[in-house]
Design a binder for these strands. Structure first.
Lengths: 321, 321
DNA sequence: GATAGGTGTGTAATCGATTAACTACGCCCT
DNA sequence: AGGGCGTAGTTAATCGATTACACACCTATC
């Protein structure tokens, strides 16, 4: 910057003003400075700028698993929305591990992100408290924690799950296997609670960990237990369940019915296409980013609750007619 | 930091020394400083540190599309490897747009990332030159550019493509539709060049853009053109082709054979399972990260060429027997 | 007991920007 | 002519760390 100033025959202050579009510099000076910048190929150092202004124009996003297309899509939406407001997003991958999540959150805070979006790995409020104590704007996404004190953006699947339960019961299924998420995550608990409640005693629950492998194992256990219908509470566990069903040579929906929470582009391609509860992922990501930006700007955004929708495709069999 | 120093009754220099594990401070001082840090909940400002040391411990990764599971997996691997070496990764999503890619690259350079991994959207070497001119370590991943002067990490599918061509020809297919990537990307060009060459005149090529929609359109065109076999050069276009095949009610492999470049966890679940050319994505990501770290440490890593493998699963029909 | 050498800390410059406070230079008005 | 005022630009403090250099103190040696 000093070089640019020298080159243009002005002080660094003037260069800075030109850079930041301040009113002061005369058009002529401005021209000279811009020419110098161009000539020297100067690019301002964002670190120095941030240090001085205490604003990094960066959001942190800590998600549970980048490999999960659900989160990838969310990340994409967050990034889109943030960019359209001039913000960058730094993504941290927690790998469903609370420790790694904490490490990442601290790293991002150390780098002074302007705000943080978190999909908490567990419902332990400790980390959230730590961030809030640091005074950094925080929004929870997809999952919440016990006694959360910050805005939360999530999808509400109650209605869809209830409708799904009604269909399954109506079709005469009496042993319905629920492949639930980990009980220490809000989504893991709530989704299965709602479904189990609506199934009124017909449900058998096995908890997985939102990963493919656990989906296969849970499916195996439930099929062995005599289930005639399976509901996987997340797309990766759904993938695992499908694998197990295929391995055993069972036919959907003839031998076993299946529904999955989370839609994926390839679900309609299966034979039969898979019935799902589709979450408005893109909207969730955008809404979360918007809430966070509002928070950063000193507003008090409300919680956002979007509704997930039941999409019938055929994998429940007659139940769908 | 000043507060911590005051609290411990030492100077900021000593605090800094404790923080950075310098030999100097006596165990007793060290204790006092650590206690003060603990008590005040002090966390060092990474921006200030980076400004002073000109090292951010951060790698930039600019990929074409986070929604593409291939790139998501790569991102994951890069992140893993980087983290294990104490580096963070900032991911930029270029959305297959050269402009957005350039914007992101510049933003990352402004933030002084220690090195950059790039999956270039086009094979135009201009951006690469710009980065190199800035003296920032750069490694290209998956794709290369014309006359690249930096290390490149990619998968070589020639062998697998040739084997695939042999099988298709051997099975008597005489009109083979190739759904290629954009001709201005190295992977888009090279993959189809190899395959078309190996098919010796039996190929019909339609270029897509590595997105689902273009896969459907290309498939439609090729099927209308009388193709009895399709090869999609990337998983998203493969997904599109599958959709088109399903829409038309065609049966694989009876009515049409299909193979896809890039494996996906759900390909084995289809009926029949899809034959693919599988790339070692995780290894690519890790290798790229390692090359970049080597470059940062002043070494001169070689290009890395991993081999993609043909995985026969049944979607080619008799050709596979 | 003076000197050399080693050790633990402090002082202050520095990284590259932003910005408050100040200066210098017209220009207008009485 | 002189005072007031607006404007363009400069000087220097600042953000929060790192680190070269200086300094004080202690110990070992002759």
């Amino acid at each position: 910057m000093k070089d640019v100033a020298q080159h243009a025959g002005v002080s660094t202050a003037t260069v800075s003003r030109v850079l930041n579009g301040h009113a002061a510099p005369t058009p002529e000076t401005r021209e000279r400075v811009l020419a110098a910048i161009e000539e020297l190929g100067y690019r301002p150092n964002a670190l120095a700028r941030s240090l001085r202004t205490t604003s990094t124009q960066t959001l942190g996003l800590v998600i549970s698993d980048l490999l999960n297309p659900f989160f990838a899509e969310i990340a994409r939406a967050v990034e889109d929305e943030a960019r359209s407001h001039g913000y960058c997003v730094v993504i941290g991958n927690a790998d469903e591990s609370a420790e790694q999540e904490a490490t990442y959150v601290r790293t991002l805070l150390d780098r002074r992100v302007d705000g943080l979006l978190l999909c908490p790995a567990t419902d332990d409020p400790e980390l959230v408290r730590e961030v809030s104590a640091g005074g950094v704007p925080l929004v929870l996404l997809d999952r919440t924690v016990r006694g959360a004190t910050c805005p939360v953006v999530r999808a509400d699947g109650s209605e869809a799950l209830t409708a799904l339960a009604r269909r399954l019961v109506g079709a005469g299924h009496s042993r319905i296997g629920v492949i639930a998420g980990p009980p220490n995550t809000s989504t893991g608990r709530e989704r299965s609670d709602v479904l189990v409640g609506a199934l009124g005693g017909l449900a058998q629950v096995v908890h997985g960990d939102f990963r493919q492998e656990s989906g296969s194992q849970a499916a195996a256990k439930l099929i062995d237990g005599g289930a005639t219908a399976l509901v996987a509470m997340d797309n990766l566990m759904g993938l695992g369940a499908l694998g197990e069903i295929k391995t055993r040579g069972l036919r959907i929906p003839h031998d076993i019915a299946l529904a999955v929470f989370d839609d994926q582009p390839w679900f309609p391609l299966l034979d039969p296409p898979i019935t799902v509860i589709a979450q408005p992922t893109v909207e969730m990501g955008r809404a979360a980013a918007r809430s966070l930006l509002a928070l950063i700007n000193g507003q008090q955004p409300d919680d956002v609750r979007l509704t997930a929708k039941l999409v019938l495709r055929g994998s429940l069999g007659e139940a769908e007619l």
